[in-house]
Write a protein that binds this DNA or RNA. Structure first.
Lengths: 371, 371
DNA sequence: GAATTTTGTTCAAACCTTTGCACAAGGAAA
DNA sequence: TTTCCTTGTGCAAAGGTTTGAACAAAATTC
């Protein structure tokens, strides 16, 4: 009558405190304490249990631990448009630093599209300890859920529109510094290639640049819309290359490195010399156009671009972002805080140098805090 | 004597089944069943509980649910080097499709660096249901942990070295198809710009290309090492541009779109015309070099590159990757499986056309399965 | 009106970990 | 010998959810 149960796949179940306790002949709590290094457990017992755990490949169940009311160790992550080369770099740094701090990233969103409700709910379902947003357009659902459930929210590379903590580079100051550099280089006709019109980051950079020019009595000769992609930079470069040399700007600020690289490609394809890079060593070609960017993406710093740009202190930006988040996990009532980090002017060969300056040096206090 | 407890931040605790049950005056199980749509709960009760839950913004605790022995809904994700523009695109698609299926991605690693032990342990601690690897160099710790703990592992865009399931584009076939296209275009001198020497993907593409050429009695004129970055493509392009026109190859296969774009930039900067794009509309400049790539990254398909390339069926690749993973979650004993999807030849303007062919068309069965 | 089914709800166990408290054994001090 | 302290361990509760089984009340059948 009684048919024996079918031989279910043996697949020895994953080790738990219980299985270790049975193997060691002690109680569950002893195992737990031994593994956590509690001083009350005798060295002999601890060694025995440690060996057993190592052999079984035991890993404590973070979910059960979280259930006790502690931290989940999970951080929700909302990523911006990945075409902008700054974001992949930011992502790598973020993953590395989060791991160093023992935090895990729960990837909720990447790119431009909108977020469905279920995804937003995941924030709550998985009990994330906090949320990190690098996206320019903060999904409002995420903001609402975080606000309504005491989930700390920190934005990186963008300032908070209404509230929340944020860390970003001093965009306006960087723009101004580039204006100074170009002015010192003796440039006369300035152009800007703008980014997304709805990101504070782009707007601040452009504003800082234009206002510094204005303060020196110089007006912008022309302006292009780049839309934050490399292609946008190329399109602007084509138009610049097509201008008669007399009207052509001799200095162009592209508000992101991706834009700047596309721009340089187009100028070169149009046989327009860029910065000091054609004749080399400071002797520049006649009619050369200087190009400067912003972000300090690795690919832009190296040849063939050797871009003069403001290098964002990426490590510090990420570090402070995580600091802000952890602080708000400790104290959810912490006031909104905006941290602004000053970038570094990296002098490459894409822009004519001021008299007497040397290529390759970096100026400015990297990561000095001003917020 | 008794000091009243300091007024701890009220911060009404998050809604749970218990709090809802108390509010509704029913038991916890009734609430659970009502929310899950169990037919045994009366419509009146259900409506009341639904309203209460909506008002409280209730979201079930996925961690507690997982503890019951079910699925966590978490997938561990190991990302490859983000400089290769294919990976950001893959990431966006993956995030979107995972969300559609109700899966969450736990981001374990991004980039080239190695993984620390704690991160690898996270796989077990957070009870991931499976693991997805897009990295070319599979971290061995991850592989070991997955194998030892019945965690299904699926690789995307690379074949398994020893074991495991994988989905990737038919790289060799794509390389061969490009060779055919270039041969039909009447090219004579062929070059290859190779990628990472240790990724099966790059090697297969190159092999497919070279073998097809050989089968037609043509040998490679020269070969460059690109190292999978845009800069590598640029370097190869500079060397090609510097060759005397007689020795210069008239067709170059860059094994990735990033390489191809860098290559084109360098050729243009060196005033070497590329494909049919200079004179436009099929009439090509004298001494033009045709460039073809592989991947079908959006930026490469559009102007200014208009690259002729093999477009990976990205959506299908991701879909099948998740299929494989889910299948292995159902049945961990499922045999290793390799799915190969055929790409589509996208004819742009970066390579001379065979007589009578039209630009912009796509040839080949997108995503036809062969594995 | 009693027996039976249907309907709606509750009980209790299980998942795994952490931790306050209790407990036992052994040694030292009184 | 009693009392107290130290050292090492076990007990049990808690955390939120799911689910099989039990239970009560109402509706149906004879």
């Amino acid at each position: 009558m009684d048919v024996p149960a079918p031989p279910t796949r043996p697949a020895r179940a994953r080790a738990t405190l219980l299985s270790l306790a049975q193997a060691a002949g002690v109680s569950i709590s002893t195992v737990s304490r031994a593994l956590r290094g509690d001083a009350r457990i005798s060295p002999a017992t601890r060694r025995r249990i440690d060996a057993l755990a190592a052999e079984a490949g035991y890993a404590p169940n973070a979910l059960a631990r979280t259930l006790l009311g502690g931290r989940s160790g999970l951080i929700g992550l909302v990523l911006g448009p990945m075409q902008n080369p700054f974001y992949p770099a930011l992502l790598e740094e973020l993953v590395a630093q989060a791991a160093e701090r023992g935090l895990r990233l729960l990837l909720l969103h990447a790119g431009e599209g909108s977020m469905d409700d279920r995804t937003a709910q995941a924030l709550l379902q998985y009990q994330v300890d906090g949320c990190l947003v690098t996206s320019a357009a903060l999904p409002s659902r995420i903001a609402a859920i975080c606000a309504g459930n005491d989930v700390p929210l920190v934005m990186i590379n963008r300032v908070a529109r209404e509230h929340g903590a944020a860390v970003c580079c001093d965009n306006a100051e960087g723009g101004a510094r580039l204006a100074d550099f170009l002015l010192a280089g003796g440039h006369r006709r300035f152009a800007v290639v703008g980014g997304n019109a709805d990101t504070s980051t782009s707007l601040d950079r452009e504003r800082g640049f234009v206002e510094r020019l204005a303060a020196r009595g110089v007006a912008l000769a022309c302006r292009f819309d780049g839309g934050a992609t490399r292609e946008g930079g190329w399109a602007a470069g084509e138009r610049i290359a097509a201008m008669p040399p007399g009207e052509r700007p001799d200095a162009v600020f592209a508000v992101g490195d991706g834009l700047a690289m596309g721009l340089i490609d187009a100028l070169r394809a149009g046989a327009v010399p860029v910065g000091a890079s054609v004749e080399g060593e400071g002797v520049e070609a006649a009619g050369a156009v200087s190009v400067v960017g912003f972000d300090g993406v690795a690919a832009a710093l190296r040849p063939p671009y050797a871009l003069t740009t403001i290098v964002q202190p990426l490590r510090a930006v990420v570090r402070r972002g995580l600091d802000l988040l952890l602080a708000r996990m400790e104290d959810p009532a912490a006031p909104d805080e905006l941290v602004t980090l000053r970038g570094t002017l990296h002098v490459g060969r894409s822009a004519r140098l001021p008299a007497g300056a040397a290529t390759g040096a970096s100026h400015g206090d990297a990561g000095r805090e001003t917020g």
